[in-house]
Amino acid sequence: MVIAEYLGQYPVTLMCRALNVSRSGFYKWHNRKPSPRQLRREQIEGKVVELFAEYKARYGAPRLAHELKDAGLPCSKNFVANIMRYRGIRARNGKGFHYRPASPTMINVEENRLRRRFHAEAPNQKWVTDITYIWVKGSWAYLATVMDLYSRAIVGWKLDTSMTEKLVLDTLTMAFSRREVNPGLIIHSDRGVQFRSVKYLDLVRSSGCLPSMSRQGNCWDNAVMESFYSRLKVELIYAEQYGSMEEVRSGIFEYIEIFYNRKRRHSALGNISPAEFERRCA
């Protein structure tokens, strides 16, 4: 529902009046538990986005449908194609491929200030942020992270059961509390509704930072963050069978705070950890 997409940006009463929807009817719809059909679509949609990025946009709906079948999520290629249209992504499969122009109805879109310049000369010059899906015993969990491109350290993160504006606000607030932020810091994300929310953009700008957003349907504009999520899933998520949110939260804490930031050797840093790289360059 359109109203849900713009929660926090416009008053619910105003949107309901404009769309001729009752407030009680909207809240009843908004607060109801998701149906099995909706949960299945969310599960498949998350996997489609993950596989699309993993195969670098080389696979269209037919091949992605085969990959989903092998992953235990059988569905038709038309169902996958519908998801791809909804997400604004299309495979690089010849003349038909092009980057789609921004939808005129998409509000609060920022320019791409990062422009794939993933190198930073000092800490807190360029950050990237995103959200990824994690399957936890019958339901989705959502992990948001903020990475400093100087050392590739994860400076803020949060895991939650819903992909809301609050998820990205809390993640960015954590990053701000950990780092010394100076005016001009670029914070890059995709065009997800959470990152286009008024509260998120206000938080970025009130700290003297510059918001930056990827082009529509272009996962390479945030390739470093995509790469981190790919490594996290290979090195942690796929190797475990988490039975609860607490288990996955504990696992992610250990991976990010103990292993990745402090111990994991990173090829882009000369095969030392982010923490060691920052120590040597201090």
Rank of each mutant, 00 (worst) to 15 (best):
R205G: 04
M174I: 03
S230G: 14
Y6T: 10
A268D: 11
S177R: 11
T145A: 15
K47G: 01
Y55I: 05
E240W: 14
Q43A: 08
I134K: 02
R196E: 01
T164L: 02
K166T: 09
A175F: 09
V49P: 07
Y255C: 07
W29F: 14
Q241I: 09
N108R: 04
Y255N: 06
N31E: 14
V12G: 10
I258N: 15
E226L: 00
S244T: 13
Y255G: 05
T13S: 15
V204S: 03
D190Q: 04
N218V: 13
V234C: 10
R113H: 08
K56D: 13
N271K: 05
G192E: 06
Y150R: 11
E278M: 00
C281Q: 13
V155K: 10
I186D: 06
L169S: 00
M147A: 10
F118L: 06
K33L: 15
Y150H: 15
R116H: 04
P74Q: 06
S227A: 08
Q43D: 07
S227L: 01
G243V: 09
I107Q: 14
N261P: 02
I187F: 08
N20M: 14
C219W: 05
I272K: 04
A282P: 08
E50F: 14
R152E: 11
E45A: 14
R262C: 04
L169F: 01
N93Q: 14
K166I: 07
K77C: 08
R179I: 05
R215W: 01
N78I: 10
Y238A: 13
I89L: 00
V146S: 10
G8Y: 08
Q38E: 15
R179C: 06
E165R: 14
R63Q: 13
R23M: 11
N261W: 07
G192Q: 02
V204A: 02
R23C: 11
V181S: 07
L143T: 01
R264P: 00
P101H: 05
E254Y: 10
A120Y: 00
L143H: 02
S76F: 02
L167I: 01
E165L: 12
R265Q: 10
I131V: 12
D148A: 13
E257V: 04
F118H: 05
E121S: 14
G96D: 07
R115G: 03
R58F: 10
V198K: 10
L210N: 01
R179F: 05
R279P: 03
G251K: 05
Y200S: 02
E110L: 01
K263R: 13
L64R: 05
A141Q: 12
K33P: 14
K77H: 12
A275L: 09
D130F: 04
S244A: 11
D130A: 02
S212R: 01
A141F: 11
I83M: 04
W140V: 08
T129K: 03
Q216Y: 13
S177A: 12
L39I: 12
R205A: 08
N82L: 14
W220A: 03
F26E: 12
L203K: 09
P123R: 00
S250F: 07
S139R: 15
E226Q: 03
R41E: 10
G25Y: 09
F97C: 00
A91K: 08
S24V: 11
W135R: 12
E254G: 06
G243L: 12
A275R: 11
R265S: 09
Y238M: 10
A223L: 07
E180W: 13
N112M: 02
L232S: 05
L51P: 04
P101Q: 06
K126W: 01
G251S: 05
S151W: 09
Y59M: 05
